[in-house]
């Protein structure tokens, strides 16, 4: 009887001790669930699809429920501001892109968030390339031909982009610069209307993400070149191959967390995300969307962010574009 009592006491004490210490110990490794990935755009868009693919994999590797929450509005700024105020314990992640972290700080005088002070980088998940295209009936066949055409017809040199202040908008400026002509920019209300305008020959030049136009090449839209180091399609050269190495730049989607999140948690999330992004079925699905699966450490993402700011900021400033 007594021995049983003693044994019980021992068990209780051990349990209590383990419980006490156990509760404190794993916080660096175990992330409190459910984990949210906030997509600051409506459901069904490119970054939403990528987030959902990853969420599905993270569920297993983090051992927590991972949900995707859409917080659309103001070009992604509402969702970004929302995540800034969320607990910094790894339970809330945010999908960001150059529009939010590179362009917005330059073109808004009062931005409700500071990309560096309010957020900690986790991982760059996908990249996508920009392309320049012409209607299928156009006489222009390649980038050199396009530059010549712009030089000869400066009064018709209009180009369309999916939105004012988007990276394709600024990317188009680089093409004008190469021709020495200030092209007129017309922004469309998204990629769909731009594609329609190009197919219908309503605008002579279009600049957009490659994946928004690749399905229409070559019958409906003629893509002349893509930016980036390698070809996306065997019959479409890169700007570098065509002799314009200065026309460059890629877009990306990346994951960040609120700034005060402990480094150990960030690293654990980053590792899990890299593993998810590099899973063969995810890689294949991301490729079928026209994007490239990447998956980097927080440090590598920081470096890309810094390089992109150096590339785009002078172009954006030179364009005189302001959002207010």
């Amino acid at each position: 009887m007594r021995s049983l009592f003693t044994r019980l006491c021992v068990v209780v004490i051990i349990a209590a001790v383990v419980g006490l210490f156990g509760a404190g110990m794993p916080s660096a490794q175990q992330i409190k669930g459910p984990i949210k990935i906030v997509v600051p755009y409506p459901a069904g868009g490119g970054s939403d699809v990528v987030a959902r693919l990853i969420a599905d994999k993270l569920k297993d590797s983090l051992g927590q429920t991972v949900i995707v929450e859409n917080k659309p509005g103001a070009g992604g700024r509402i969702g970004t501001e929302f995540v800034k105020g969320q607990p910094a314990d790894g339970s809330t992640m945010l999908v960001v892109n150059p529009a939010l972290f590179v362009v917005a700080p330059v073109v808004f005088s009062k931005l409700a968030y500071d990309p560096d002070a309010d957020f900690a980088p986790v991982s760059l998940i996908t990249t996508y390339q920009f392309c320049v295209s012409v209607p299928p009936t156009s006489t222009v066949k390649d980038v050199k031909g396009l530059i010549d055409w712009i030089k000869k017809n400066p009064n018709q040199a209009n180009y369309g982009s999916p939105a004012a202040g988007s990276l394709p908008h600024f990317f188009g400026l680089m093409i004008g610069k190469a021709a020495g002509v200030e092209m007129v920019h017309s922004s469309y209300n998204g990629s769909g209307p731009l594609v329609t305008a190009l197919i219908g020959n309503q605008i002579p030049i279009g600049v957009d993400a490659f994946d928004a136009q690749s399905a229409y090449h070559p019958d409906k839209i003629r893509i002349l070149a893509t930016a980036g180091t390698t070809r996306k399609k065997t019959d479409i050269p890169t700007f570098t191959e065509e002799g314009f190495p200065d026309i460059a730049g890629v877009g990306w989607n990346a994951i960040v967390v609120p700034a005060k999140t402990p480094k150990a948690v960030v690293d654990r999330l980053s590792a899990a995300i890299v593993k998810a992004v590099k899973a063969p079925d995810v890689v294949q699905k991301i490729q079928s969307l026209g994007n490239d699966a990447v998956g980097t450490t927080p440090e590598a993402f920081s470096a890309t962010l810094k390089k992109d700011r150096e590339r785009w900021t002078p172009i954006i400033k030179a364009s005189g574009f302001k959002a207010e």
Binding site: G73, A74, G75, R77, I78, E81, V107, K110, A112, A163, A164, G165, H169, S186, S187, Y188, N189, F321, K322, A323, E324
Partner: peptide, 20 residues
């Protein structure tokens, strides 16, 4: 809201929810 042509916000009074 945000003007499609110029990308400038109009009559939004600094309220992000009105940017659209």
């Amino acid at each position: 809201g945000t003007d499609v042509t110029s990308g400038v916000q109009r009559f939004a009074f600094g309220i992000p929810e009105l940017a659209d």
